[in-house]
Amino acid sequence: MNGRDADPGGDGSPGRREGGAGGPAARSPEQVAPELLARMGPVDLVARRMVDGTLAGLHRSGRRGTSAEFAELRAYRPGDDLRHVDWRMVGRSDRFYVKEYREDTHLVSRILLDASASMGWSSRPGELPSKLWYGKLLAACLGLLLLRQGDRVGLVAFDDTLRNRVPPRGGPRQQREFLRRIREVEAGGGTLAHTALRDEATAMQRRGLVVLVSDLLVDPDPVTRILTTLARRGHDVRVIHLMDPGERTLEGGGRRRFVDPETGRSLDVSVPEIRDAYRETVSRVLEEWRRRLGAAGVSYRLCSTDRPPVEALNRVLSPGRPAGRHRGTPPRRVSP
């Protein structure tokens, strides 16, 4: 049942229908990602919130700048550029006002990829990809997408500790580095995600996009706390919850001894007896995650590894809640 970082190969879609897995023809996520994005066509990832950046870009900034989008009038202060004085208001009120415009900026994104041992599991090795493979594919797609639209993207792979870190940068060089580092990520140890996340959160100074790709087999309280803090600081936080269908439904029969790949703990259960209650537990846990993260303003997306990655990408790209107007072509959703 265990398949570490199983790779279904093919065109990146999991499952038998996409050509099986694990063989010599299997392909890594960073190879599949460009093709997948090509299939999706022109799509953008737009921040749901105002973010901070140093370059003009696609995303709405909290700063007042010089873009075409009017923000407000404010009283003239010495030193203000006279070009921005609203002469019409001067003529009307005999007082000097300066026009302010909302500044569009580039996005600083960080993709946090859970690389714990549990992520390397697949309920049907050879048929379904591991959660890590699926997560790497999503991360690669998101990274490429953001880089292509001129944003800066960083990668953090973690288990108990930060294992692989690519600082947010932009440009073709970053794209190569980003994909290389994604390729290097392998399922590792336990998931004390909150320690790694806390370390990373302290390093995030500017508001930006934070995408957590994880199976969320973690202690929910500290993780929720950190994500809430990030959201309160103005980050656009998105959580992609990866689940293997076997984790949701507890298939099989008879008495089984289940062993946790991270902790080594084991449990003897009669699967038919417990299956219904287990599914209820899973539903309850998912609902709890949805509730907690929703309350914190964090976008939560549940993705099952037996669903096409295109569908998962569409979910991730769609804004969880309207964040105001944005410039340019709206993101196009692609049918899986």
Binding site: M1, R257, F258, D260, V269
Partner: peptide, 11 residues
């Protein structure tokens, strides 16, 4: 026969 199952916490 033991089998790996990561969602042990749910169990």
């Amino acid at each position: 026969v033991p089998s790996s199952f990561p969602a042990l916490r749910y169990l």
